[in-house]
């Protein structure tokens, strides 16, 4: 039942190359995913601002357009404001815990350094070891980076809170039962002969195509995330053949081989969406001209737009809060490791200090 525990050991050069490759890959994948998500946000934003698809669904002028009803159901199904409240409640505690761990870790360094300085002052040149202030520099730098990260997280919390404050009313409205929601939407005059209209047909087709583009991006994202291959054999071979690893050249080639196709497809998808959005906006202009425009209709339209945007904001908030929670929990682990590092080195210093004191007293 022998298993070689060293089977994954590689030369240092390969380890470093793998690390650098990992960074490149992460950058590429994150960039592609960010592009795609941004374009979905853009599409949603444009549609909401044009009151689509609600406007072309709104035949009666006083019942809730199906798409708005669907959005309301989606928000309710995900727990509505309660989900958000819950996630938001936990964040300050998580932040506080992380702060405390970091503060504690750095405090033990500070305390030991004070004592070391005192002894240095007392024994002067007889206190021969490296000063703690010198020794602890890398740890303090690391601690400083952690603090910066916590500051960024605090700012992120604030952004999320503000977003919540701005949109909680609309989200609450979306969570109401259908009858109540309907009552909150101003009545408008029904749009005349809506269904048969050519421009409505066109808009429906374009919106369906836009939805397809969104779905395609979801597929891409899943596919891109599941691409997996092992670079260690490539780097090992290069090292064996050439005695050195040209990491950049090898990584770029391999990344292009595995992701190049996706990069291409994503670009095509984004371009297609750009064209669709332009056509949708043009068609919407036509549509607006052909529909009766008055105060009632405008008020209704504004409310429907707000509700559509509210759904998107809810989704965004939930994502932000999940991201924040994940960050704080993951960061706790990192900080605990850091704290252990600090207390370990301080313990070693104390032991060393006691030895030195003993020697000095004896001499």
């Amino acid at each position: 039942k022998f298993t070689d525990v060293f089977v994954k050991m590689v030369p240092l050069a390969v380890q470093q190359a793998l690390s650098a490759y990992g960074q490149r890959r992460a950058d590429l994948v994150n960039r592609l995913i960010a592009q795609m998500r941004e374009s979905t946000n853009l599409a949603n934003g444009v549609l909401a601002s044009l009151n689509l698809p609600a406007a072309i669904e709104d035949v009666s002028g006083d019942s809730i357009p199906q798409s708005i009803l669907d959005k309301s159901k989606a928000v309710i199904q995900q727990g509505g404001l309660q989900t958000i409240d819950q996630l938001m409640r936990d964040l300050p505690e998580l932040l506080q815990r992380n702060r405390e761990i970091l503060d504690e870790a750095l405090k033990v360094l500070d305390q030991e350094e004070v004592t070391d300085n005192e002894l240095k002052a007392k024994f002067k040149e007889r206190w021969k070891r490296t000063p703690s202030s010198e020794l602890y520099k890398p740890l303090r730098t690391e601690g400083g980076n952690f603090r910066t990260a916590l500051d960024r997280a605090t700012h992120a919390d604030k952004v999320v809170r503000e977003r919540y404050a701005t949109h909680s009313e609309v989200i609450a409205l979306l969570c109401k039962p259908e009858a109540e929601l309907n009552a909150a939407i101003p009545s408008g005059n029904p749009t005349k002969s809506l269904q048969g209209s050519e421009v409505v047909m066109l808009l429906k087709t374009l919106l369906a195509a836009l939805n397809e583009a969104k779905k395609e991006r979801e597929t891409f994202e899943n596919d891109i995330k599941s691409v997996q291959f092992d670079m260690s054999s490539k780097f090992l071979t290069a090292l064996a053949q050439d005695g050195a690893i040209n990491e950049e050249a090898i990584s770029v080639t391999e990344l292009d081989r595995y992701y190049g196709g996706y990069t291409e497809k994503v670009q095509q998808n984004l371009k297609k969406q750009e064209e669709l959005l332009a056509k949708i906006q043009a068609a919407h202009e036509e549509f607006s001209k052909s529909t009766q425009s008055n105060t009632d209709a405008n008020q209704r339209e504004e409310m429907l737009k707000k509700l559509a945007a509210g759904h998107d904001q809810f989704v965004e908030l939930v994502n932000n809060l999940k991201e924040g929670t994940k960050f704080y929990n993951g960061f706790t682990e990192i900080l605990l490791k850091f704290q252990t590092k600090c207390s370990d080195i301080v313990f070693a210093r104390k032991t060393e200090r006691d030895e030195l004191l003993k020697d000095l007293q004896q001499s």
Partner: peptide, 16 residues
């Protein structure tokens, strides 16, 4: 993304 990347914060330092 709003929050810092955990990957950037994980430092694998060689034990000295």
């Amino acid at each position: 993304s709003l929050y810092p990347s955990l990957e950037d914060l994980k430092v694998d330092k060689v034990i000295q």
